Amino acid sequence: MYKDKTNKKRYPPRGKPTGSHHSEGHRGMFKPLMSMSKESFKEMRTYFVLKILSDNPDGITGYQLQEDYHFPRTNVLRVLDDLVEQKYVKIKKDEVDGRANKLFIITDTGMNYMDELKEKWADRFSMMSDTTMPYFSRGEKHMLLKRIDQLTSIEDAIDYFRGKRSKIKTKQSAIQERLEILENRKERLDDLIKFLEKSDKFDKAELIEQVKDWWETTNKE
């Protein structure tokens, strides 16, 4: 709100926020990259926050999330408060150079929920699950060692690692299916390229028919 020369109160136009906290750098920070429901978007946002926390097993402050990962301050604090309330995240108070810090740490429940979200969205964002590199992140290593510390017998250890192996086998099957689909599409493209290379002239209508035939055949498989 401001005053003009007539001393009347004026308000900024709608849709044009003022103030540094509405800068271009933050505008649209949490907007989804594709069409999805509000609930789905919240799940994706939760996944990314939990993933960051899992990669920082000793804890991370809200300020670090804001500065290092470019989360808007009011938004990230609200998300963290919700995660704490749902027991996915816990708070550890720490003091550095006489200053009190509030560290947010992912819990075992939070790790499990993160894995659930990861699997749920794997089909839509396959890069999140099926094509990840076969090494442990810092968070996964921390949670693995913590889980091993809780084991009390050989039987418990065998059951635990059998469960881990079962998850890997499931992912292997999913990867194999994707590889077969990609190989099939590659072969179709090879045929299409050969057709074009043998053509004396560019027949757009024939090319369209070839692509339609490819599409129909692929959808029947």
Rank of each mutant, 00 (worst) to 15 (best):
V84Q: 05
L151M: 14
K212L: 14
G25P: 04
R27Q: 14
K141D: 07
S166P: 00
W215E: 10
F30D: 04
K171P: 00
E177H: 09
G25W: 05
E197K: 15
V89R: 00
T131N: 03
L33W: 00
S153L: 03
T6G: 06
K31S: 10
R178E: 10
W121A: 06
E221Y: 08
M34S: 13
I158H: 04
M1R: 06
P17R: 04
N184R: 13
N56C: 02
F125I: 12
F195V: 09
G25I: 07
D115L: 06
D94G: 00
D130A: 08
N112T: 09
E209D: 05
R138T: 10
A157R: 12
K186Q: 13
L189M: 13
S23R: 11
L182C: 09
R99H: 09
E221W: 07
Y11L: 10
K198E: 13
N101D: 04
D58I: 02
L103S: 01
T131K: 02
F104E: 00
E216M: 13
R138M: 11
S173H: 10
R14C: 06
M114C: 07
L50C: 03
K16L: 14
E119L: 15
M128C: 06
E95Q: 15
M114G: 00
W121T: 01
L65S: 00
R78I: 01
M29V: 08
D55Y: 01
P134S: 02
K93F: 10
R99Q: 12
Q176C: 01
M29Y: 05
G59T: 01
E155P: 06
G163T: 05
F202A: 07
S35G: 06
E187Q: 12
F161Y: 15
L53W: 03
D123Y: 04
I52F: 04
K16M: 13
T170A: 13
E180D: 15
T74N: 09
M127D: 09
Q64T: 11
F125V: 10
T218W: 10
T217R: 14
M127S: 11
M29A: 15
